[in-house]
Structures are given as structure tokens and as C-alpha cells.
């Protein structure tokens, strides 16, 4: 049993799922669902469609080079069954998976570095620009002491106001 990858979105295609198209030059295109098949028929380039793995890889959203990617591959050679080997492989799978997940998390964290400050800055700016929509400017001038308290509160949670 071979688990194929979708041509368009790179997700796993399990037996009995999806559809495959064989072009008249004998090239096989596998699709995981009708969404991917339709996108292929529309001649869309997966590298330009944001939700595909190909896009995420090209644009540095996902981890690209890693030693954990060396395990899963298409093996075009017969393997003699060996029970000990099978046991070892089954033991190794969860370990490798754990390592990969942690590395992916680290990659995501690195990618999102500096994002928090940016979000905070944008929120503060929006708050200053659109506070008049919540409170009338005249009332802000009247109760100067009270305003300070409300500002502190709203700065902690600026998105709740909208």
C-alpha cells in the first residue's frame, strides 16, 4: 500500500480517495479531492496558491531543510520483510515525529519573532485614531482623570473595543 501525495496541495492521498488523471504522455496526476482537481483544471500554479504546501515552502513559511525529511521517501525497490527491522521502525516513528514537531514549532517561533511588537504598535495607533468613535472628544476633555484609567485598561485589550 502506497500513500501518494496530492499533485496540487501535497497532502496524503489514501487508497480509495481522490481522483487521478493520466495524461496522454502517461504522466500521472493525483489529487486528494475535487478542490485540487478543479484548481488543476483551471491551470493554476500551486506555487502561487496560498493554501498549498508548495507555496508555503517557496515563501519560507514552513521548515524546508531538515534531517527529519530524509525518512519518508518513495522507495522504488523491493524490501525483504524483516521482523526486527519492522519493530525498530515502528519504535522510531513516534520519536522522529516528536523531533520534527518540535523543530517546526521552533521554526514558527523564529518566523514570528518581532511580530508581537508590531501588533502592539498597530493596536496602539488604531486606539489613538479611533477612540473618538467610542467616546466623544468633549467627554474626554471633561474627565481627564478618569480617562487615564480607561486608557490603561483598553491598552491591555485594544481589540475588544471594536
Amino acid at each position: 500500500m502506497r500513500l501518494e501525495k496530492c499533485w496540487f496541495c501535497s497532502s496524503t492521498v489514501y487508497p480509495g480517495h481522490g481522483i487521478q488523471f493520466v495524461r496522454n504522455d502517461a504522466k500521472i496526476f493525483r489529487f486528494c479531492r475535487s478542490k485540487c482537481h478543479k484548481n488543476f483544471k483551471m491551470k493554476r500554479n500551486p506555487r502561487k496558491v496560498k493554501w498549498t504546501k508548495a507555496y508555503r515552502r517557496v515563501h519560507g513559511k514552513d521548515m524546508t531543510q531538515d534531517s527529519t525529511f530524509e525518512f519518508e521517501r518513495k522507495r522504488n525497490r523491493p524490501e525483504r520483510y524483516d521482523r526486527n527491522l519492522a519493530v525498530d521502525v515502528l519504535k522510531a516513528i513516534p520519536k522522529i515525529d516528536k523531533i520534527r514537531v518540535s523543530r517546526e514549532e521552533r521554526h514558527h517561533k523564529n518566523r514570528m519573532k518581532g511580530n508581537k511588537a508590531k501588533v502592539q504598535k498597530e493596536a496602539e495607533k488604531e486606539y489613538e485614531q479611533s477612540i473618538h468613535m467610542v467616546k466623544a472628544p468633549s467627554s474626554l476633555q471633561q474627565e481627564k482623570i478618569k480617562v487615564k484609567v480607561s486608557q490603561q485598561q483598553s491598552e491591555e485589550n485594544p481589540l475588544m473595543e471594536e
Partner: peptide, 25 residues
């Protein structure tokens, strides 16, 4: 420009390695 997308690209993007065709091939 770049070479068009292929099945191999899709597999690499899915986190698979290069295909292993055995020593003979």
C-alpha cells in the same frame, strides 16, 4: 522562468526526501 510544478516538487513540499531507486538504478 522557473520550471513548472511537478509531482516531485509536491512530494518534497510534503516533507518527503528524494526518491530512493536502489543501488542498481
Amino acid at each position: 522562468g522557473d520550471a513548472p510544478h511537478t509531482q516531485l516538487d509536491a512530494e518534497l513540499a510534503a516533507g518527503m526526501g528524494m526518491p530512493d531507486n536502489g543501488p542498481k538504478l
